[in-house]
Design a protein around this nucleic acid. Sequence first.
DNA 1: GATGAATGAGTGTTCATTCAT
DNA 2: TATGAATGAACACTCATTCAT
Lengths: 199, 199, 199, 199
Amino acid sequence: MGGTMDGTKQQRRGNTRQRIQDVALELFAEQGYEKTSLREIAERLDVTKAALYYHFKTKEEIIVSLFEDLTKPMAELIEWGREQPSTLDTKREIIRRYSAALAGAEPLFRFMQENQATVRELRIGDIFKDRMRGLRDILIDPGADLVDQVRSVSAMFTLHAGMFAMQDLEGDVEKKRAATLAVSLDLITQAHEHACRRT
Amino acid sequence: MGGTMDGTKQQRRGNTRQRIQDVALELFAEQGYEKTSLREIAERLDVTKAALYYHFKTKEEIIVSLFEDLTKPMAELIEWGREQPSTLDTKREIIRRYSAALAGAEPLFRFMQENQATVRELRIGDIFKDRMRGLRDILIDPGADLVDQVRSVSAMFTLHAGMFAMQDLEGDVEKKRAATLAVSLDLITQAHEHACRRT
Amino acid sequence: MGGTMDGTKQQRRGNTRQRIQDVALELFAEQGYEKTSLREIAERLDVTKAALYYHFKTKEEIIVSLFEDLTKPMAELIEWGREQPSTLDTKREIIRRYSAALAGAEPLFRFMQENQATVRELRIGDIFKDRMRGLRDILIDPGADLVDQVRSVSAMFTLHAGMFAMQDLEGDVEKKRAATLAVSLDLITQAHEHACRRT
Amino acid sequence: MGGTMDGTKQQRRGNTRQRIQDVALELFAEQGYEKTSLREIAERLDVTKAALYYHFKTKEEIIVSLFEDLTKPMAELIEWGREQPSTLDTKREIIRRYSAALAGAEPLFRFMQENQATVRELRIGDIFKDRMRGLRDILIDPGADLVDQVRSVSAMFTLHAGMFAMQDLEGDVEKKRAATLAVSLDLITQAHEHACRRT
DNA sequence: GATGAATGAGTGTTCATTCAT
DNA sequence: TATGAATGAACACTCATTCAT
């Protein structure tokens, strides 16, 4: 209170790019990619559309940049996972870390889930698909029972559902997160143990 | 008058409305709602855009009509479910029938899943959300453990994931459907039995 | 004066396409292709830009349609020329007819000449280039002296120059046209006779 | 100060203005004035757009400066021509020197020819028109036959055509230049001698 | 001698929608 | 049952230009 400059249009030196990303992600997640126009983003930031083009070559590049910035943890997780032995502990750790990665970039992941049709046509669509497949292949034992494969995939999707579809369940957010993680871990454990017993 | 049926542009008496729905659903599911223009639909049918407006008042009404026509089984399932006692058998039957309902209107459900952001702004968004909540409330025991609630929701989402996300797993389509159903039934069973043991 | 309907927005049934072409050609010839915006064309016609798009898929298609409509005589001339024996009389007739063709589509040819850089990137650029080459190859004797080849080409370009670059010479338009044609015929005659004497 | 010249971005002290002109002319001649953006020029030079504005007040000034620098020989030629007696020898010398002037600034003249519609709206349009008229008036005898006037103008345009329209004729460049010049001299000679005979 | 950041005015193009016929 | 012709509002994107640093 008092002090912090004059309040309008100040302090935007050098961080405009960041502010564009923030507002864009918020709007993309809220209304979808196509229904969010550059005009809208620009107006919220009190700059002109042309200013957006100074920082990003196209509309798509905005979402691509967000994707690249925010999914780094996911990429690293996959890389890490590939180098580990395919033990139950590894898989459980993957699930735990993936849960954390999701929580850390919630709006982006919500966007990815709720705009799949759009995302599919965008450059990030393929990258994301690859990543999901990467994760899946780490969690699934080659040659496992089909039911157990489904269980592994379901473990991942339970985490997704936990973020978006269970938000209107009554109860504390953190507790729901924990419960979701528990079910996910349960599924991956069942999948793994069945598979072992067979061999 | 009278005359030869020559194969093109005849024989479509009265079924134009139906044909519009078919093509629209195909395109909506493939490219998304916003990216599918009425021009595109009209061109595929070899009629003019204005013709679409003879059959549907707006673009939104096309998707609404599809939704209403194709989700009747789901609505009936919920109605049926509400009148049944909350036993394990009931729940398993719900899951089975829901799986069948999904399979029977695959493109529409794919559309709903892949265009959630769009659907949310449409009239069908709320209806669908209500239905999903309806289903969920039948499957969940009030006062059950949070983990078991998650398990129930996960049972539903496993079916969804099964339709869309597992399509690139290797294996026969029917077998995958069966496996998915098995995991889903497993989850709902676990949820139910835990809950019973507590009471 | 007196009589002709009410003056505003009447009589435009069915001929809008034609009116667009007329206005577009006028503006393209006057200001160039790039500097003429669709807004400008639409405003002159008192319709919206979108109306232009009902009749033409793109801006380029407007100029393409003009080109196709207006250069038919030129195309036919080339076709005719190819079937004739390569006599002096044929060549003189070609020059005469080409002169007439130019006069009959003056604004288009002016446009083509004054916007060569633009035209080169358009679809019509290549077509036009081919036509010019076609004409040239009819007029030039294979194996003629280089100087005589130049004379033949110069005969064509003299006609062009006559249309555009000599308009500010003093004198009656028709007389200038006749004089230009005379010089052109002279050149083609010289070219032909030299060539004959050599063989 | 001292220091190693490493090859990139050095050694351009003071000659940036020149480099801008070079690149601009190249692009203007290749794609036209309107289709060449300052961004493009700047990118080729690996400087920012703003840097261009340090050296030139507007886009137009770039082409104006090119025009002024490169058409000095043409201006001097006219000045010289005006002071000479109107003999055949003078006229032939004018044609020879004009041919050389064209060859010495080929890209600019190509640009002027291929962007006439654009050039007309630019400041250089009028200057150039005046110059062409100046040349013409030296070559034409006042009161000569209209046909001979056309011949004189055609002599000039033959040189133009020679530069641009005959480039795809087979044959050595230098030989074509010589042939073109020969035809042009021929035309001017015919024009002159006819005129003399009449007086 | 040049850059980073931005603007204002414009571009061609597409869309859902309307309405007289 | 449809079409032909048009509209108004929007969209992504580009441009020449400016100015503080």
